[in-house]
Write a protein that binds this DNA or RNA. Sequence first.
DNA 1: AAGAACCCCCCTCATTTGGGGGGATTTCGA
DNA 2: TCGAAATCCCCCCAAATGAGGGGGGTTCTT
Lengths: 231, 231
Amino acid sequence: MEPDILNLDSCTVQEAVLRIARFYEVDFVTLHLFRGGEDAQNKPYVRTNYPDAWVSHYLLNDYVRVDPVLELAEQIAGPFCWTKINPRQEQREFMETAIKHGVRQTGFSVRHVDSIGRRSVLSFNAQTAKGGDTWQPYIDTKRKELISLAYHIHLMALAEIYDGNDGLPQLSPREIECLKWTADGKAHTEIAIILGLSDHTVRGYLKDARLKLDSVSLAQAVSKASSLGLI
Amino acid sequence: MEPDILNLDSCTVQEAVLRIARFYEVDFVTLHLFRGGEDAQNKPYVRTNYPDAWVSHYLLNDYVRVDPVLELAEQIAGPFCWTKINPRQEQREFMETAIKHGVRQTGFSVRHVDSIGRRSVLSFNAQTAKGGDTWQPYIDTKRKELISLAYHIHLMALAEIYDGNDGLPQLSPREIECLKWTADGKAHTEIAIILGLSDHTVRGYLKDARLKLDSVSLAQAVSKASSLGLI
DNA sequence: AAGAACCCCCCTCATTTGGGGGGATTTCGA
DNA sequence: TCGAAATCCCCCCAAATGAGGGGGGTTCTT
C-alpha cells in the first residue's frame, strides 16, 4: 500500500524520514514513537529532519509534554490537519517558538497504535498546504496510503529499537499454549493431560515462559503475556 | 448530552426505542447489543420497532451474520449513513427482502464499544433522509448527541440484561488492590506489607476475588480481571 | 559440524496457594 | 433498625508452585 518507490526496507528510520519528506514534497517529517511502560511520555523515540537547533531545544525543554500535535494525535483516529489544533496559551508559545526555529506554518500528522498500545505519530510539515487552505483534501485522498505508511515506519522503528525483533518476549508455541491454559485456570497436571505431555514437561514450559516474561509468579506471567497480546 | 426530553431513565429499552423513533422522527429504531464471549455474534440482544414479521424473519434466518449495517458498524467509528454500505450479493438480497418487509429506504447507525469490547449498534430507518440525499449532513450536526445516545442506551441495555448492574463481578476496592499487586508479581506476604495488613487478610481478599471471578487460581483470576478491565 | 532453539522427561525442597472453616467491626442503604 | 457488604483478623491441611538441579532428543541454520 505504501509507495514502493520509497523502498523503505533495509534503510534506517532516519533515512526513511528523509525519503518520506522528499517523496511527499514537504520540508520536514518527524516520527515520534511512544513505547509503553513508565517512560511512555518521557522518552519517546524520535527521528526527524527538523533543524538541530529546534530538535535540541524541543528535547531540552521537554516539549513532548506540550506539543499540541502529539496531544491531538491522542484524540484523532486517522490522519489529521494541524488546523484542527486548538492550542492553550502554553501551546501557543510553543508554536511561536517553533516558527522562530524554522518550523513551517502548516502540517498534518497520522498516528498508529499497535496491539499493545505503543504509539507512533508521523508528522509532515511544510510552508503551504497541498490541497488548498488546509491539508485536509490532500490527506483525504491519501488516507489509506498514510495510514499504511505510519504502520510501516512504526514497525521499522520498533525493529531498530529492539534489534530486529518486535521487542516482545519470544515465547515458543508450547509455552504460549501452556500459558493460555493456565490463564484459563488449568493446573499443570490438567494441562499435561490436555496436551498429552508429562506434567514435568508442562512445568518446564511454564517455568521458561515465566523466566522469559521476567515474572516471579504464574499470575504475573499471565498478566504480562495478556497485556502484551501474547496469549 | 442526550435530549433530556426523552427521559430515558426508568423505562425499558424497548420503550426507549419507541421514544427515540418518535423524537428523531424516523420510522424504525433498532438496538443490537453484542456481548462478549462465544455467543458474541450468535445471539445479540435486540430491541426494535420493526414489524414483527421482519424481526422474526431476520432472527430465523440468522441475518445478524449478513446484515451489512452491522458489518459496516465494525469498521466505522461514529455515526454513519447507510449509503456508505457497499453490499455483497448476499447482502443485496438481504436488503431487497428487508424492503419487502417494510424496512425503509434510508438509514444511519451509530456504534458504541465499551471498555470490555461489548458493542451496541443503534440504527435509524426512515423513508427519506433528513439532510438531503443522505443523512450525512444531519448526523454531522447531531454527531455528539448520537454518540451520547448510543452510550446511554448501551448502558440501559446492559442494566436490563444484568438486572441493574453492569454485568461485571463487583470486586471491592481492597480486592482489586490485592489483585493488582498479584498481577504485578507480589506474593500475599509482600502485599500485606505494602498495604499494611495481615497476610491472612490479604489471602482473604484474594480468595474472595477469586471466588467472585469464578476462578480456580490466582492466575485465572488475574487473567479474567484484566480482560474485564477490572484491574 | 556446531550451535541454537525448540521439545521432552526427571528430581528435590521450601514456600505459596486453594479450600475449608471461624470471627469482629463499620458503613450504608432499605 | 435491620441486613448486606465491606473491611479486617485468625486457623488448618493438602496440593500446587518456584527455584534449583539433571538428562535426553530433533530440526534448522550457519
